[in-house]
Design a protein around this nucleic acid. Structure first.
Lengths: 341, 341
DNA sequence: TATGTTTACAAAAACGTTTTTGATACTTTA
DNA sequence: TAAAGTATCAAAAACGTTTTTGTAAACATA
């Protein structure tokens, strides 16, 4: 149905190779012929078949957004949505083809990153959500296809990462809590062996120690970054500890903070009057919660945009693998009470 | 680098055609040869190149999720995210390849749906976000590729739609408001010429009239489904109308309801004490707002899943074009005050 | 035993591009 | 004016599959 390059060649009275060179602005073709071919192509509404193009040309410019665990997380989480928007925005502005693949720990075993790229003829991918125990974590380094990981660092000369200075950011957040008069702070953490957990933990510790404070080990609640676990964890915490034994909950993600607030309300406590709570990520949802959540904005959309940017530059050979650290911003809202000291 | 079908053929001492038939479970091949080929393929870690496969085979099974306006909406909106999850869930369960394309009104002009399918060799798509003024709205009918639209109905023998009974649902929602004692209700509407707007408007009118009520024309606020417009619209409304001239705001989407609550709070009013507000969609965010929003849950994830299901069945010829109407559920929470009559 | 039928595979065509190679005609150079 | 270079294009190869066509051997039928 649709016109092929053959149809255009026939209609213009030239060979298919000539049409191809006309369409792709190659030099060795007369201006007159190019004009004529372009006109014929326009008339026939010719659009190159991208699959054939992809198969034929040696180098692909197509990029992919690869999300691990997207389907496991039944929860709502706009982190991935904003990441997508950023990636697609860049691709859109630069006329790039971008596709999205959903994987998990199991499918990573079945198929390596390089195979995924080969199968779909993609030049490289932006990878989000992999854990340090995932197969990709090591195999990424061996791939000849460049990639950019979000928030985790994988060694390899073709792998870049885009992240924030989570340690500094969490330090800042903790310091804010301390500045507001909080001395006894509980930590609601993410997955125990996740990079981001360690980084944020370091930030918290640094701030605490700088101020001569130290949280006892039993003020720490671990989760797998799931809201429900925060709710359960904090509920358990409240039962085991006396009232006001801590005055604030420092959470490693906004969803954990939301879960924490839920547990607190459930137990009849008011936020921030009885307990202060802070989150981390800067999800849109935090503007609408009750109370509006104080958090650290990572500017996730920018993260996606810059990741795509970096990946594209690597593919085109303009930039080499690197660690890109984006700025963050402390977003002060209504979930922290100032304590008089 | 990666092994091709040629490598497998050579290693197994057969022709490429035979390898292809062995891999795809064709009948005319001996069990012994198949075994041997499969073993060799395994050893060489052979994975068919999907691009070549796509180009070669006449019929594709790949589907696409086509989002119009995804990038325009700078707002957070988890509608699309949940839709994606549903689609990808189905694709994942059935071993289908699914890709996501972002379009807008302008790119629709440049490239028809059929051309999009042709270019990427996709069998059909799930289409979300098109307006009645968009080029796709009419051109979809002419395409030979089947498609499923979400919430809009397009005529054509290859186009299905998945929707809710928005009229009945909005009737229900309105009736709930009336049952709670509300008599003077303002309507915060979506885009004036959108199908869903008309349907929901009809539902509201039906309920109102059944109860002998009729909203004066100036109790209606139109928006383009943007939160900020609701905020501005309601703020303007409050200035022009006396206190308690209306007691409730009936919003056509959750984001509009959130915007409405924002305007109300800004004006120093409490929700639901001074004014009641209800939304529509069932976004996750409505569970966390203050107050928790009463809304109609569309079960968007199911919508995506069923859309993919229907599309797949159409592609395989198991189902013909149809209009699928999914159930909804009134979600009663805390944003409506019961008025004593 | 001659003839048809089936089985199991090889060989080649096809998908729609890009890229390489080759060839003709024109232009420049000495 | 002959040789060399250049511009412009055609022809063919290549990408990695699937699908079609062809064919030899094995088997069944008369």
């Amino acid at each position: 149905m649709a016109a092929t390059i053959q149809d255009v060649a026939r209609a213009a009275g030239v060979s298919v190779g000539t049409v191809s060179r006309a369409m792709n602005n190659y030099p060795d073709i007369s201006a007159k012929t190019r004009e004529r071919i372009l006109k014929v192509a326009e008339e026939l509404k010719y659009r190159p078949n991208l699959v054939a193009k992809s198969l034929s040309s040696k180098h692909s410019r197509d990029i992919a957004l690869i999300l691990s665990g997207f389907l496991e997380d039944a929860m709502f989480n706009d982190f991935e949505t904003m990441l997508m928007k950023g990636c697609y925005q860049f691709a859109f502005e630069h006329g790039l083809d971008i596709s999205m693949y959903v994987i998990n720990s199991r499918t990573q075993e079945e198929k390596s990153y390089e195979q995924l790229c080969y199968e779909h003829n993609i030049a490289g991918g932006i990878i989000f959500g992999i854990k340090s125990t995932d197969p990709y974590f090591t195999s990424l380094a061996e791939s000849k296809n460049p990639c950019v990981t979000i928030d985790v660092e994988v060694s390899g000369k073709n792998v870049s990462s885009v992240t924030n200075d989570h340690m500094a950011a969490f330090d800042e957040l903790t310091q804010y809590l301390i500045d507001q008069g909080h001395r006894r702070i509980a930590l609601v953490c993410g997955r125990k062996n996740a990079t981001v957990t360690a980084q944020r933990m370091d930030g918290a510790m640094r701030a605490l120690e700088r101020n001569g404070l130290r949280p006892p080990a039993d003020f720490v609640i671990y989760t797998n970054f799931l809201k429900e676990e925060a709710t359960d964890g904090v509920a358990g915490f409240l039962k085991e500890h006396q009232d006001q034994e801590v005055t604030a909950f420092l959470c490693m993600s906004d969803m954990l903070a939301i879960g924490t607030v839920e547990a607190l309300k459930e137990a009849g406590c008011r936020v921030p009057d009885d307990y202060s709570v802070v989150g981390y990520d800067g999800l849109y949802v935090t503007e609408y919660t009750d109370p509006r959540l104080t958090t650290v904005d990572q500017n996730i959309k920018d993260k996606g945009y810059e990741a795509a940017h970096l990946l594209f530059d690597m593919i085109e050979g303009r930039r080499s693998a690197q660690r890109l650290i984006l700025p963050h911003k402390l977003e002060i809202r209504d979930s922290v009470k100032r304590l008089e000291i």
